[in-house]
Amino acid sequence: MSAKNHGFPWNLLVGFILSIALTLLAVFVAFYTDFSSHVILWVIGVMALFQAIIQLFMFMHVTEGKEGIINVVNMVNSIILALIIVFGSIWVLTSGHASLH
């Protein structure tokens, strides 16, 4: 990390192209392949996560500054929480015999 990086912002450009490509790929997988909907969901989910990681590292410089490690730990912690909240809620609310489905 340096204050004077006159150079061309390659990492931004690569990140941008990757995110456009991943978006199009996700649309392709979703609409033009014959995978089961279960597989499609996993594939496009992983690609979304990959895009998020691109944003975090290439655009948001998550590792930079004195607190780089803390920021990474914070993000990992938040993602774990997100998974607990999302999968926990779905499991709790849709698996029981009182479920509406």
Partner: peptide
């Protein structure tokens, strides 16, 4: 740093 912590809270909010 504080804003990153806030973004952690935002992740929980959106999830």
């Amino acid at each position: 740093l504080g804003f990153w912590v806030f973004l952690g809270a935002e992740i929980v909010l959106f999830s």
